[in-house]
Amino acid sequence: MIRFLRIAGKRLLGAVPSLIGVIIVTFLLSHALPGDPAVLFAGPAADAASVAQVRAHLGLDHSLPQQFLTYIWQLAHGDLGQSLTTGQPVMTDLVQRLPASLELTLVALIFAIGVAVPLGIWAATRPNSWIDHLCRGTVTVAAAFPTFFIALLLVYVFYFLIPLAPEPVGRLNDVYFDAPTTITGFYLIDSLLEGDWQTFGGALAQIILPAISLGLFALAPIARITRAAMLQTLASDHVRTARALGLSRHRILITYALRNAMLPVVNVLGMVFSFVLGSNVLIEDVYGWPGVGAYAVKAVISSDYAAVQGFILMMAVLYILLNLVVDLLSMMVDPRVRFEG
């Protein structure tokens, strides 16, 4: 356990340089955005004098290095600046919206894992059978369609044609439900913590379609890597040993093959998670989901640097944490990784 914590700490420290790099690059990039934020902020009716006033107010009249130092100073105090479009501190915006995106991503991922891993195992135990081909076929088709198309299709079929799903109006239909008190920011968890089953049901009904649209895209890589890893471990020497000593089929499949196959699967999961988080943008628009993806797109379009910077920084931190989680999971799966660290 101590070794575990030491490695985790080491990895976190190792992330500091990349974090500094991200801060510098995002600052430069967002200042390279086309358009003048002062003009935008001052509004269409502003004259040159008021634009200059806004510029001075935003600190945009200072030199770039000076602006950068100010930015660092504010960052150190947890201040990501003011969003020009929402008029709120960027920090507040992100804290409000991130849980929505994370919740959607996690549910999508759980759906994808729940379908893809058993599918991959099933296909690996019967290579080149009809189930193997079926698995490959569905998974390829699911990955081939663009995410937004699937999202629209699902809304069309399950809301418009067959009204099974609720209206796609975001995380919760506020005509019928009140949002649960924020504890984790995840509606599904918060409503359960409050014991409010109705709100839980409402939130669940809202998240199913967007989560499936997102998750379908993640099916292919997870199912493929599970199948490949399972095929490899099933053909390995130690599974042959287990068979030669007559261990039960179940024991061989789970303890001797699946556990060993989990290492590549965990690594791919990390990658898939970041892909899915990225494609949130497309889904959030279709389902009116109040996540960070839609927020970032709006910020880029309106040259809202602070918001863009804040978003990129947050994603970088998420990425680093995600890699840490993947590392720790690999350590749990494979003792050899533990000892290398």
Binding site: R240, T241, A244, L245, G246, L247, Y256, N260, D334, P335
Partner: peptide, 25 residues
């Protein structure tokens, strides 16, 4: 019934023992 026989009445060992054992167990 073969699986029940193997390990109990007839057993086998292999070359390269390190890979013949489950590396993460």
């Amino acid at each position: 019934s073969l699986a029940e026989t193997r390990g109990r009445e007839i057993a086998m060992i292999f070359q390269s023992p390190r890979t013949a054992l489950n590396p993460i167990r």
